[in-house]
Nucleic acid binder design. Sequence first.
DNA 1: CCGAGCTGTGAAACCGATAACATTTCCCAA
DNA 2: TTGGGAAATGTTATCGGTTTCACAGCTCGG
Lengths: 348, 348
Amino acid sequence: MSRKATIYDIAREAGVSTATVTRVVRRDPHVREATRQRVQQVIDAHDYTPSLSAQNLESGRSRTLAVVLPVISNLYFNRILDAAYWEAEKNHCSIRLFQTMENQAISSELVSELIRCRMDGVLFAGSIWSADRDDLNFALDKLRKYMPVATICPPDVSLECICIQSDLVNCSRLPVRHLHTLGHRRIAFLGGSMHSKDTSRRGEGFLEQLRLMNLSDDPAYHVDAGYDMESGERAVLRMLSGLDSSRWPTAIVTFNDLVALGAMKQLKRMGLSLPRDMAIIGCDNQFFCAYTDPSLTSVDLHPEEMAQSAVRELLLARESSSRSFAIVREATLVIRESCGAHLGFRRL
Amino acid sequence: MSRKATIYDIAREAGVSTATVTRVVRRDPHVREATRQRVQQVIDAHDYTPSLSAQNLESGRSRTLAVVLPVISNLYFNRILDAAYWEAEKNHCSIRLFQTMENQAISSELVSELIRCRMDGVLFAGSIWSADRDDLNFALDKLRKYMPVATICPPDVSLECICIQSDLVNCSRLPVRHLHTLGHRRIAFLGGSMHSKDTSRRGEGFLEQLRLMNLSDDPAYHVDAGYDMESGERAVLRMLSGLDSSRWPTAIVTFNDLVALGAMKQLKRMGLSLPRDMAIIGCDNQFFCAYTDPSLTSVDLHPEEMAQSAVRELLLARESSSRSFAIVREATLVIRESCGAHLGFRRL
DNA sequence: CCGAGCTGTGAAACCGATAACATTTCCCAA
DNA sequence: TTGGGAAATGTTATCGGTTTCACAGCTCGG
């Protein structure tokens, strides 16, 4: 590994001071043309570029935003990271990723690490949903002293930071309404955790919506489960095997598309024909939704746009003092085949 | 935003020199217990952590590895990034992501940027497959002067760097053998680009394998296409509609699982029953393979392990001078339902 | 012919740490 | 008591930039 040329090397070789080299690099007009050219030649000859570390030290910022999320292999978070990346890129910033795994709370180590790295801002997505409120606010307060903080979170969580809230109302309302219109009256919800403060509260919103529409909120129709395909399979099995088939729900709403994928597999394994015997709606509108069999109707929360807003607000807040406020991006329902709407299906 | 306490603040308040503060922070034993405690108290009171930028400047390294890939939304690269992240994490390093998009060549801007950031190493995955050899070697040579370079690439590309090669041989051989065993003789390949130097050369390897086994390598069975689901749909349509149904292949191998997903959709739309009327094999063994209908047999190249090796080797090379060498992780075939093996299906 | 006002350039402080080296303190044996 | 050596602590240069300020040289009006 050869040593990288420094500004001193360039200055010496060009017979000028380092100040002049900086001026040339930064395109400062107060440099005589002849000098500029001479310096530029030396710069080119050595492929000189100023050291990021030195610049960061001098400026006191890192031009880097932290993105904290549970896992990137989950497509929802993958989309958030991707969108954050491009929005940061557009603003000449980079992203530093932190994966917290199932361990969803913000640890004090993470807080220290974020401060140590002198991040220009931090975006939490998902990793804080289940944290204890007091711990969380303590951590956020500490962080907010040093950098702007944004979160992508369910709307009930009123945290002292930039909150990009997912549209929980429509996330529940749209699928239930759609199914209701198609004649369904017994609608189940699978996945996530419904009664703890865990998850994004999709389950709770769903229950509220059922009651609002005078539909049964029989607990037998609500199975807590995880967030992946295996959870979906198990949840369907657990729910249906515990019920007389006359009481089976006619439609299932799932926590996300992965759970839906597992559920569909299990339903088919049990000999049901989809969407005839069971309608199903996922959430997140993942890329594979159009390619399942039947293709999967799903709610899109538009995580990309939320991430984009979050990054934009963080970069803005960097300049001015950061206030607390919330932004909501409306959810939309993408209708495909899994509820039979394309066939003109109507229950009863 | 309040100013972060510096080592000078701590030193002054604790009535010691900065050297002693450093010693306390770094757990140097040559500090009297009483002093240590006094300093530690001040440190705790201010949440002091040494500035990363300053440390980076001083040490001349960034403790950061660059990972360069086309897009993270592609699950293959997503897995690479994820594995690289954890391996770096384990070694107290972070990852800086660069997405090159469809623009696959290494641009000279990227090279400058990598050098500017004083990366401790760089891993290229996918972004270099299609680059012009001369441009590529020029860029890599330049980079290698300043940091170790690793690539995850097809085996033919003998680049002057740490090459983690995907197992192209088995990647082609395993599916063809499997299909041959099941009685298939007319096997098609869809996706990627077969005849240019583009892509990972999966297509070429496939052709070789066909010839090796005395199977037809009729060009009508090889459709260049993209890397996504839409490409899969179009490719199937193009191939089959151009052939008399008596000459249709009985099995399809695809560039990756996304193409397979699209192909399956199109095949079903054309009224074929899978796997009875057409066997299909994907590549990458993505998470959804077990949940397609029928579940998808797929080749796993183990990108996680390749990324892990790459990161490990980069970190090793950082210490010693970096040599050029290659490592291959064998590919494996994960057999599911899409070829009918579970039904004891045999053609002819 | 002098000084005000530019323009171009350099010297030096600073950003926040680390580490080599210097110095002080302390303890104990002579 | 003192001297030697180890232990504890301080001083200072350095990493590679940026920026402020001072100043030299030049132009031009009076």
